[in-house]
Design a binder for these strands. Structure first.
Lengths: 219, 219
DNA sequence: TAGATTGTTAATCGATTAACAATC
DNA sequence: TAGATTGTTAATCGATTAACAATC
């Protein structure tokens, strides 16, 4: 893989911005406008595209439809991606009901939980006992999973998923996990994000206060 | 601010790893072990600490309690941080019921929604009409907010929050937002994370296939 | 053509890592 | 003391940005 770590995430942002431009009736777009909508520089946009051999027209910008087509191929949107979810607690249940995945070609096909009370086959997406996970993953050739179990159970869950053959895991549990090289791991950690925000806000308040104090001293 | 962008996120990870070590009965820890638990290098750990003037004992490592104390001060854990949430849909409701925030000193004090049917003062965390947001933020001096509204409404929501005086926003809506300089913005984007994982898994499969083809050609 | 935008190279910037002197 | 670990400096690595030639 040549391209850099953040590039794919940006391609994903370009795609969603392009969909918005398209729905507003735009046919073509310049790197400048797309950059603005995605919150990056126009050089970044052109660089990202050139990494993937996406070409525009000098002086004419990019055709939105053609661009979307190419991004969809890169991001694997040409076929629906089946995903499973482990842990049907508050967060897991919210993701099961989240409607935006489907329009992005991502489908949560099944959930698993260790608690029999949470298991059901009576809703749109079934929740099965954890004991059936390995068989399901093997039979359905599932490659992507989402972990929504408590931190204490997260590593064991990951181990089980890896053993079953899962190759990519998105972990919502607030703990760093260890996976073998052939399984990718991403994190969503809301606590950490909030802590980071709180730090920034506090740091700015402190520096504002110092600025004010200096100003007061000059008077 | 001297320190780098990812440093605070790592401090947050160190903190949670240290809490686990502590609960296992450890008193002291070396940068090596902490690094391993947080998934980074030991040089990174020592560098991060030195940026904040956190010192250990040469040859003796770090006292876990003292370390946690210092990290808590840096991360603003010495006082409870009040946070509001806008948009009480699936994701918003899941966050309202999420119990891990409290033990991190983060408290969602109130939620807001434009839909009167979602509003209630009969549960632990009230859900008020959006029209009361500005008054509430001003009166309670809220500085941090979480946006869980649909993408289409996210920018207007952010504008409203900024106008009311919020200084840091965590956005769950899948769209890039624009905020003035004095308001920090972070994102949680589950679709993007999944797309990134799918890309990596597909890329690895492709490169494995090429490897196998080459091997087959050599036979 | 003149003007504007792409595509790419080289420069810059920032973050991570390696290495090792200081020292407990 | 000898050995091991910290704290820090310098080297490396990678990502972003600036700049501009190519060209539509």
């Amino acid at each position: 893989m040549i391209e850099n770590k953040n590039c794919i995430i940006r391609l994903s942002h370009y795609k969603s911005a392009l969909n918005r431009f398209k729905s507003l009736g735009f046919i073509k777009i310049f790197s400048d406008y797309l950059a603005d909508a995605a919150g990056v520089s126009s050089a970044q946009v052109r660089k990202d595209f050139s990494l993937f051999g996406i070409a525009g027209n000098k002086r004419g910008g990019y055709q939105i439809d053609a661009l979307l087509e190419q991004l969809n191929v890169i991001l694997g949107k040409n076929q629906i991606q089946n995903v499973i979810l482990v842990g049907a607690g508050h967060m897991g249940a919210a993701l099961l009901r989240y409607k935006n995945f489907e329009k992005e070609g991502i489908r949560i096909v099944c959930a698993f939980d260790i608690d029999p009370a949470k298991c059901t086959t009576k809703q749109e997406i079934p929740v099965l006992p954890l004991s059936e996970l390995e068989k399901y993953v093997a039979e359905q050739a599932v490659r992507i999973a989402i972990i929504c179990v408590p931190a204490i159970a997260a590593q064991a869950t990951l181990d089980m998923l890896v053993k079953a053959g899962v190759k990519g895991v998105l972990n919502f549990a607030p703990i760093q996990l260890k996976a073998p090289e052939d399984c990718s791991l991403s994190y969503v950690n809301v606590e950490t994000e909030l802590e980071n925000l709180i730090y920034k806000v506090n740091a700015r308040e402190r520096s504002d206060m110092i600025t004010r104090e200096k100003a007061a001293l000059q008077d």
